[in-house]
Design a protein around this nucleic acid. Sequence first.
DNA 1: GTTTTTGCAAAGTATTTGCAAATGG
DNA 2: CCATTTGCAAATACTTTGCAAAAAC
Lengths: 132, 132
Amino acid sequence: MQALKYSRQRESIKNFLAGRKDHPTADIVYTELRKTYPNISLGTVYRNLALLTDLGDIQKITAGDGVDRYDANTTPHNHFICRRCKAVLDLDMEDISYIKDIASEKFDGVIESYSVNFYGICPSCKRDLTNE
Amino acid sequence: MQALKYSRQRESIKNFLAGRKDHPTADIVYTELRKTYPNISLGTVYRNLALLTDLGDIQKITAGDGVDRYDANTTPHNHFICRRCKAVLDLDMEDISYIKDIASEKFDGVIESYSVNFYGICPSCKRDLTNE
DNA sequence: GTTTTTGCAAAGTATTTGCAAATGG
DNA sequence: CCATTTGCAAATACTTTGCAAAAAC
């Protein structure tokens, strides 16, 4: 049971995320979709973001600033969070998934996954700071 | 200006954290300190945890489950979060701080720090699951 | 027709904040 | 005394949830 039924709202949330390279919060998704679907509700957005995350269609990012963000890119990659403008960027970097094995070496439990966030100053803010 | 004045509450929060190897939430700190200081308030606990974090005396851990945790151990180390019992454990593992350099290679901004969380099943839950 | 999803509003968490009183230096 | 910190309560921010109506199949 619990078959999945199509919903225009869910579809548009997924498409909206797929078209963004930044990592919108639930509230941004809601505000933007509202332009096309004036009646969509925040609850629906949250429900679908959670469902899509469970399905593995999207990824939830916890950057540590109190708001969760969502990413349609579910291939393994790491994030950078700018401490000045709070932007969350994808990092183009060499694979470091072997850190999972390093962590497992002296650990008696099971390590299934990991998440890395890098923090600092993004390229754009770096420019701003240089020209100040 | 903004000189730091001693406070019994701040001192006890710091000491309480120093005596724990798990990673208590603000609410746990509050509930436990209340046994010694029945009048301490949650606001005071939050204010001091934020202040101590800024001072670098403690570390804030965002595990991704909506509650922040605090750690008196400020030496670089990584955390493991059990998806079954939600325990947050320190990982005894080889240094991986070079991932900062790897991340910097193709990145035009400044990477100042990073945080890694590993997820899976802790040793204790692993035992429980085996004996089920 | 039955089940899932929605919109709306209310409720639930976690955390922050304004302010007068208390405390520290 | 003056500046900082506290306790308290109210406010805020983010997310979840109950329920009747709407949509999907």
